[in-house]
């Protein structure tokens, strides 16, 4: 039986937060973890967002969405280790690169499907009448995409982004197993040295990081999405015949 008091002691020890010789502290690993995650999410956004917008807008090449979605059935630990074993030996020196490059590849593979699929679905779900009216009033194809489809797709794009962020933060933890830094270090080092407070403390930090990032993205969503789309307006002003049509969203969280 492991008690929480040990975990709290570990988290409360300022020594654990600072770097020591041969071991990085919580601050450093937190920053590492964030850095791996942010890089992967930005790359995945750069791939998934334009691709999803384009496929959703044109209605062409939809097979790409299903193909990328099929990637989700692969277990992330397996992918992580496979890529590490394939790429690792070809990278020499340069610090963490042998761990970092395969990890980033897997994280991008993981984050792209939800962003791509949700962007595509978001554009697809835009009311056909709104799209028709936009074209009929003289918007060019690009204007229809950026002035009508994108703003209305934002709630789904954000939910894809949030789901991607959660999976990336979770999987970045496992990257410590193959030797990368990040908060996962405490989990696996703690396990190896039977230092269970450290292990549990690391796990709790990951959970808190995931919650905080999700909260920040939720705030970003609140700021970015029009109230007309999110439905955050005074319900008293609603006409009697309107019904809230919430879309059931299913997201795979692997890892």
């Amino acid at each position: 039986m492991i008690s929480f008091s040990g975990v709290i002691t570990w988290l409360n020890d300022p020594g654990n937060w600072r770097d020591r010789v041969g071991q990085e502290g919580i601050f450093t690993q937190l920053l590492n973890h964030l850095q791996y995650s942010v890089v992967a999410i930005l790359i995945a956004l750069a791939i998934g967002l334009p691709l999803g917008l384009l496929i959703g807008h044109s209605g062409r090449a939809t097979f790409i969405v299903s193909a990328v979605n099929a990637l989700r059935a692969l277990p992330t630990v397996g992918l992580l280790i496979l890529f590490y074993v394939i790429i690792g030996p070809h990278i020499h020196g340069k610090g963490d690169a042998a761990f970092l490059i395969p990890t980033e590849i897997v994280l991008v593979l993981l984050a792209t499907p939800p962003i791509l699929a949700n962007t595509y679905a978001g554009v697809q779900n835009v009311e056909p009448a709104a799209r028709d009216a936009a074209a009929g009033m003289g918007m060019t194809s690009t204007q229809v995409l950026f002035r009508v489809e994108l703003p209305n797709a934002l709630p789904l794009i954000f939910s894809g982004l949030r789901s991607a962020a959660l999976q990336v933060i979770a999987t970045a933890t496992i990257a410590a197993y193959v030797g990368l830094g990040g908060l996962g270090r405490f989990v696996y080092d703690g396990l190896a040295s039977r230092d269970f407070p450290q292990m549990t403390g690391g796990a709790i930090l990951v959970a808190i990081l995931a919650l905080v990032v999700d909260l920040l993205l939720a705030l970003g969503q609140r700021y970015a999405v029009s109230r007309g789309v999110s439905g955050r307006f005074s319900k008293r002003a609603l006409p009697a015949d309107s019904r809230s049509g919430e879309v059931v969203q299913l997201e795979v969280a692997s890892a």
């Binding site: 009311e127 709104a130 936009a134 029009s226």
Partner: peptide
């Protein structure tokens, strides 16, 4: 141009 379901832009 006026159409059946008005086609108003929900975000505006």
């Amino acid at each position: 141009y006026v159409i059946q379901h008005a086609g108003l832009f929900p975000h505006r």
